[in-house]
Design a protein around this nucleic acid. Sequence first.
DNA 1: GTCTATAAGAAGATAGAC
DNA 2: GTCTATCTTCTTATAGAC
Lengths: 217, 217
Amino acid sequence: MTTKQKILKEALTLFSEKGYHAVYVGDIAAAVGMKAPSLYKHYKSKKDIFNAILVEMEENYKKQTAELRMNGNDAGEDVSVFAAVSEDTLVQMGMKLFQFFLHDDYASKFRKMLTMEQFHDHDLSHLYSKQYIDDPLSYEASIFTFLLAGGVFKNVKPDIMALHFYAPIYMLLTVCDRQPEREMEALQLIEEHIKQFNFIYRKDAENEACIDTWTKS
Amino acid sequence: MTTKQKILKEALTLFSEKGYHAVYVGDIAAAVGMKAPSLYKHYKSKKDIFNAILVEMEENYKKQTAELRMNGNDAGEDVSVFAAVSEDTLVQMGMKLFQFFLHDDYASKFRKMLTMEQFHDHDLSHLYSKQYIDDPLSYEASIFTFLLAGGVFKNVKPDIMALHFYAPIYMLLTVCDRQPEREMEALQLIEEHIKQFNFIYRKDAENEACIDTWTKS
DNA sequence: GTCTATAAGAAGATAGAC
DNA sequence: GTCTATCTTCTTATAGAC
């Protein structure tokens, strides 16, 4: 890891804990193991460090979503082929989403930093919404579009179904960001959330049987 | 409005726009229409102003939730008496919750300020979770407990039902906090969310008819 | 209670030796 | 590339006149 990278890493850690304005150039230098003036051989200003973090994290994000989209679409097609998805699969899908977002070191710190800096300019607002709201919703909606085609769920709007699936996960994620001690509670809630989600959205046996009865009479 | 109150009001506005550390005592003074040193006749430090905002907003919050709890419980009992609640009532409930949270001037600014400062200490973390997550969830859960007793909804856990109802509203609220231009889009989504929420949770006509058929045969 | 003047120190950034 | 020394500006806060 180059010195430039190490500076970004330590700066991100500090920014995610205290916010941009509460971190001083000397703090970053100390975390890297040098004095403040040395930083200026690598970055021309404090703001420059912040911008470099944005650029680096946006590259990471693009790589990860590219991977996820490949896996995701495969998964989507799989369940479409099977024309069914078990409750357990849904639970695993939600839990994995939550755990990755929460525990990936860079993702987690970057999200906390963006949470604190999101109101400072239009680009940061847009970036936050894209990464934590719009892209996940769009990803989930594409999955549910596949699942709905399978016919095991009620005929509803996939984008609203995605909202119902993702919003509780997002909300509990923000809870754990500020209160990490509530992770177990959050995981328990997510499991119950997805089981109930599955229960209310799935065409149930009685209903199917009922339609069969009608069809035959 | 006393000078002390005016200082708090302007400080809250500035803190909610730029965050505590990015606002200087001189900025607050200028907003009030005085010079920085004059502020120190009313508050002994910048931090003291911040703390006074917390105290004042917590008092407001207690009053408002006390009112809401009274109205809320009345509403809850009403629907329980009628043993039914229309889709429209649910939509109105969600829309009102959203619009109040979003447009109440003090509530809105305070939420943005807390969003930026929530990681700075344990008390602020707790306060944010209480006001924007735990209390609203608990309030909605008590309403759904009433509604479930009415028998028009499927037999599910009211706290998870509250999560499904509130989480999308909360998430869209944070979107509008950072991108106010998306309010119409958010309102549209909330309406669709609640209609679909009503559709999937309500014991539907076919299902009822089906059970009738079975009961008779 | 508000002001001008100013102290006291913090924080970002640069100069120049090594 | 890193350091010490230093500059400049900003920021909180106080002193004391009015």
